[in-house]
Design a binder for these strands. Structure first.
Length: 586
RNA sequence: GCCUCGGUAGCUCAGGGGAUAGAGCAGCCGCCUCCUAAGCGGCAGGUCGCAGGUUCGAAUCCUGCCCGGGGCACCA
């Protein structure tokens, strides 16, 4: 509809230009937007105000000229000139009638653009290190990424969803060693658990698993393990130096196979756990991309080669550096350390190149706000690889803070007593969690109130919306009980009977849905959809309280049932995009 | 210090060049013989952090300042 009105205005401008009413150097593209108030019609165009100065005409006079040349349209009832020079368009009854029919015919496809009608997007999200269970911070990235990918797909993008598994770096070694230490404890060895080790209970679970598979094969005397190691933090030493020495010792004592046993057990257990957790949350991926695979496939070497070919690498102090500072970053970055090992950033460059090669459109990253410093160096990497940096888009998701009523819930990752995503889901349910995570703008800090999320009252937005849907289903159940039969065709012919303010508001609201999806996709903002669904539910509840649907007048009854069914369809479609169920009853 | 997100009603937040700045919660007053009151209606509540600038028009864009969250590794 918006595009249609733009077209009408463009045509009117074309006629005026052709008739020599005025000169226009460039063809202006008219801005058409939804009005806030019903008095201003449905759509407003500000073109007259924009052009008045250039043409030396009063905005309202110019608006009048444009209006006089607007082509007729079945979808437009009338056009008014208002305020400083707005052209206000009122949608016709015909248009609204067609909308209800379209919704009922298209069903779950209503609001869905043809696949592939927009550019491809490769969306990476969550990508938490597999060193522990997901916590509530990851939950927001997961819910945001999943909702956004569904919205992008609905808006016509081909979307590839990926989770990047950091299975290559030092943190994974620390995890593997933590498992081994717990394994030794379980075997009865006396050891000092490293200050920098992972302390969560899940490490014991993995250690038990390793023990059941390998028995005492990996057992060594605690004294042998500790011999000659530098002091840990508790003994007045440096915890970082200690843990690295311990990793080296583990490799040495266990050999490649033994070490790999701990490493693989830790990695596989954690990735499986994360995958299951996300699956239960309705968050899925097309691909789990292994960082290790970048080296094995040669992608890492190839990416570095490409940077070198562009003369973006140099050697200094035994390390290989990337000239990021010449490409917009704060400083140059190391890609190969003096010990010969590549950095995490080197993997990132390789993965980025891989993404660009596989996806002709945009590589979109969903990152936690604490990673924002990473953006300039990723952009620099894109430039260094010879790729348009605009094809790399990063969306930063701000933190979520849990509240119980007004009381802040403390989280501590150090002690291992943090609130996991799983715990959160079990407490408030998946629907509430999914909705709450995306009800605020992603660049806004989120206060997540557990009590509110569990509340079964209108103050809880997710219940409020779900209740609207349940009520709609209930109306149709009741219809059957009263012996009436739903006649959609009759309702369609009588759609003009929907003339109350509530009904007109609702017709306009359901008509707007595809534009909401489009706009949420364009602005990468699922919260626009959350707000829309809440508004739609509010309009429905008001209508429901104000008027009866199951009246004796068959025309009116079926017209109202058509609108009711259409609202239910839109609620289902919208809730589906943000991963929330639309219940039959509550 | 530099980068980044924010500062809008008592609270949590929408609106991100346009016409009287919105919603939910909290507060006050009403509404069930009737499709789910898990709901609805009404009242009250605002120097859009401060100061300049751009514009026909600024909560919205630009600059500076103040306040708060986060970040500035040969960690991952």
């Amino acid at each position: 509809m918006r595009a249609h009105i733009k077209e009408l205005v463009s045509q009117a401008l074309g006629y005026l230009k052709r008739d020599g009413e005025f000169e226009l150097d460039a063809e202006p593209s008219p801005e058409v937007e939804r009005t806030r108030s019903r008095e201003h019609g449905d759509y407003a165009c500000n073109i007259a105000m924009v052009l008045s100065r250039r043409l030396g005409m009063k905005p309202r006079d110019l608006a009048e000229k444009i209006r006089s040349r607007l082509p007729d349209s079945k979808r437009v009832e009338k056009v008014e000139i208002a305020g400083p020079g707005f052209l206000n368009f009122f949608a016709s009854a015909h248009y609204l009638k067609v909308v209800v029919r379209d919704i009922l015919r298209q069903g779950e496809d209503y609001g869905r653009a043809p696949a592939g009608s927009r550019e491809d997007v490769l969306l990476e999200y969550v990508s938490a290190n597999p060193t522990g269970p997901l916590h509530v911070g990851h939950g927001r990235g997961a819910a945001h990424g999943a909702s956004l990918s569904a919205i992008l797909a609905a808006a016509g993008h081909n979307v590839q969803r990926e989770y990047y598994v950091n299975d290559y770096g030092r943190q994974m070694d620390i995890l593997a060693v933590s498992v081994w230490m717990r394994y030794l404890e379980l075997a009865g060895e006396r050891i000092e658990f490293p200050a920098n080790g992972y302390r969560g209970d899940y490490i014991f679970d993995i250690a038990r698993e390793v023990r059941s598979r390998h028995g005492d094969d990996l057992r060594h005397h605690g004294a042998d393990v500790a011999e000659g190691l530098p002091p840990d933090e508790a003994a007045g030493g440096d915890s970082e130096i200690f843990i690295d020495a311990l990793i080296a010792r583990a490799r040495e004592i266990l050999g490649e196979a033994g070490y790999e046993a701990c490493f693989r057990a830790a990695l596989e257990t954690m990735v499986d756990d994360i995958r299951a957790d996300l699956d239960d949350f309705g968050v899925t991926f097309d691909r789990w991309f292994s960082e290790r695979s970048l080296e094995q496939s040669g992608a890492l070497a190839r990416a570095l080669e490409r940077l070198r070919a562009g003369h973006w690498l140099y050697e200094k102090e035994g390390a290989t550096w990337f000239r990021a500072a010449d490409l917009g970053d704060d400083k140059d970055r190391v890609v190969v350390r003096d010990n010969g090992r590549t950095t995490y950033f080197a993997s990132d460059v390789a993965y980025l190149l891989d993404k660009f090669e596989r996806c002709p459109g945009t590589a979109l990253y969903i990152l936690g706000a604490d990673h924002h410093g990473y953006v300039p160096r990723l952009k620099a990497a894109a430039r260094g690889l010879g790729v348009d940096p605009d094809r790399l888009e990063v969306q930063l998701v701000q933190f979520a803070v849990l509240y119980r009523g007004t009381e802040k819930v403390q989280m501590s990752t150090r002690s291992g007593s943090f609130v996991t995503l799983r715990e959160l889901r079990e407490e408030v349910g998946n629907d509430a969690a999914r909705y709450f995570y995306v009800m605020r703008s992603h660049d806004q800090h989120l206060d997540f109130d557990l009590e509110l999320a569990k509340s079964r009252a209108s103050e809880n937005p997710v219940y409020y919306i779900q209740y609207a849907h349940a009520r709609i289903r209930s109306v149709f159940r009741k219809l059957e009980e009263t012996g009436h039969r739903y006649n959609a065709a009759l309702g369609e012919t009588a759609i003009d009977r929907l003339d109350s303010d509530h009904e007109q508001d609702l017709l306009r609201a359901v008509a707007r849905y595809p534009e909401v999806v489009e706009s949420a996709a364009e602005r990468r903002s699922p919260h626009l959809l959350s707000h829309y669904l809440h508004d739609l539910a509010a309009l429905f509840h008001a209508w429901y309280n104000n008027s009866h649907f199951l009246v004796d007048d068959a025309e009116l009854r079926n017209a109202r049932l058509n609108l009711t069914a259409a609202i239910g369809q839109v609620l289902r479609n919208g809730l589906g995009l943000i991963g929330v169920h639309a219940p039959e009853e509550m």
